[in-house]
C-alpha cells in the first residue's frame, strides 16, 4: 500500500465520519460546523481527483458560502428545536435504512463495474480547445462547448434571488435585506473586514482572469468577491443595498443578459445559437466572463443577505 493511498484512505474515512456526524449530531450548530469541515475535506478530494477547478468551487461555495447560510439559520432556531428528538418511528428508520443501503449498494456496484477503458470526451475537448483561444479545458467547456448549461445556470441564480426576495414580509418590499446583522464596530471582525477585502478582491479578480488558462474562472472568482462583500456587510462596514435600486438589478442581470445577447448574435455571425465567430472568440469569452463574474458575485452575496425587511422588523427578530 503506497503512501498516497494511505492518505486517500484517511481522507475518505474522515469524510464518511463527518458525513455521519452531520446526520447524527445532537445540536444543529454541531451539524452545520461538521458540514463546513466536510466541505473543506471534499475540496481536498477534488484535488486528489485532479479536478482543481472543482476544488476551488467546492471550498468557496460548497463549504464557505453554504456554511455561512446554514450557520445563520441554525443560531436562530427556537430553543425547543435546538435539541431534536427523533420523531421518526423505529419502523420508518428501519425502512429508510434498508432503502438507503440499497441505493448506496447499487451505486457502489456501479462504481466497481464501470466500463474499462472509460468513455471520455477529453480528446474532443483537447482537439477543439485551440479554436476558443483558451488554455483551461474546464473553462472551455463551461463557456463554449456547454455554454447553454452555464447560461441557464446564471439565470437560475437570478431566479433564486427573485424567489428569496419574494419571501419578504408584508412591509419589507423595497427595503434592505435583513439577514446579515452587523457586529458592533471595533471588534476583531471589524479589523478583519478592513484587512482582508483588498487582498480578497485581488484574489477574486485574479481567479477570474487566470481561469482562461489555469484553474479558476467566473464562478470561483465571483464566489471570492461575494465572500469579501458579505464580510464587509457582517462587520457593518457597508450596508446591504435596498432591493429596489435599479443599478443593483442591472448588475444582477448584466452577465446572463450579455451572455444571451452574444449567443443570439451567434445565430447570424457564426451560424448557430451560442456559437462564437472564431476570430473574436477569445475577446468575446473574456467580456462574457467579466460580466458573469460581476453578476455571480452580486447574486451570491444577495442570496446570503436574504429577503428585504423593514428596519423595525429586523430589530424584532429573535
Amino acid at each position: 500500500m503506497s503512501a498516497a493511498l494511505i492518505v486517500d484512505l484517511g481522507l475518505a474515512l474522515s469524510i464518511l465520519g463527518l458525513g455521519v456526524w452531520t446526520v447524527a449530531a445532537r445540536s444543529h450548530n454541531g451539524a452545520v460546523v461538521g458540514y463546513i469541515a466536510y466541505g473543506l475535506l471534499v475540496a481536498l478530494v477534488w484535488v486528489r481527483l485532479a479536478a482543481v477547478d472543482v476544488a476551488l468551487t467546492e471550498a468557496a461555495i460548497g463549504s464557505g458560502l453554504t456554511g455561512l447560510l446554514l450557520l445563520g439559520v441554525a443560531t436562530r432556531l427556537p430553543r425547543s428545536a435546538r435539541q431534536p428528538s427523533p420523531t421518526a418511528g423505529r419502523w420508518t428508520r428501519l425502512l429508510a435504512g434498508v432503502l438507503s443501503a440499497t441505493v448506496a449498494g447499487g451505486l457502489a456496484a456501479v462504481v466497481l463495474l464501470l466500463p474499462d477503458p472509460a468513455p471520455t470526451l477529453a480528446p474532443s475537448v483537447a482537439a477543439n480547445l485551440p479554436a476558443t483561444g483558451l488554455g483551461n479545458p474546464v473553462t472551455g467547456v463551461l463557456i463554449a462547448f456547454r455554454a447553454i448549461d452555464t447560461l441557464l445556470e446564471s439565470v437560475v441564480l437570478v431566479f433564486a434571488i427573485i424567489g428569496v426576495w419574494s419571501l419578504a414580509p408584508k412591509d419589507g418590499w423595497g427595503e434592505r435585506p435583513g439577514w446579515l446583522r452587523p457586529a458592533p464596530l471595533g471588534s476583531a471582525l471589524t479589523l478583519l473586514a478592513q484587512l482582508l477585502p483588498p487582498i480578497g478582491i485581488l484574489v477574486g479578480i485574479h481567479l477570474f482572469w487566470t481561469g482562461a488558462n489555469a484553474p479558476g474562472g467566473a464562478f470561483q472568482g465571483g464566489a471570492v468577491l461575494a465572500a469579501m462583500w458579505v464580510l464587509a456587510m457582517i462587520a457593518g462596514l457597508t450596508r446591504p443595498p435596498a432591493v429596489s435600486r435599479r443599478r443593483l438589478r442591472l448588475v444582477l442581470v448584466i452577465g446572463p443578459a450579455l451572455f444571451l445577447a452574444v449567443g443570439v448574435a451567434g445565430i447570424w455571425l457564426a451560424g448557430d445559437f451560442l456559437a462564437y465567430p472564431v476570430a473574436y472568440a477569445k475577446p468575446l469569452i473574456l467580456v462574457i466572463e467579466a460580466a458573469l463574474t460581476l453578476s455571480i458575485a452580486a447574486a451570491l452575496g444577495l442570496l446570503l443577505a436574504g429577503p428585504p425587511e423593514a428596519p423595525s422588523a429586523a430589530e424584532r427578530q429573535p
Binding site: A4, L9, A12, R48, L49, S100, V103, A104, L107
Partner: peptide, 28 residues
C-alpha cells in the same frame, strides 16, 4: 484511490438519503 472515492460517494448518497427521510426539522 479512484475506486475508493467512488465507494465513498456511493456511501454518502445513502447517508444523505437516510438523513433526508428520518431527520426531524427542516435545517437537518
Amino acid at each position: 484511490a479512484v475506486t475508493l472515492f467512488g465507494l465513498c460517494g456511493a456511501a454518502l448518497v445513502g447517508l444523505g438519503l437516510y438523513g433526508l427521510i428520518v431527520l426531524p426539522g427542516a435545517l437537518r
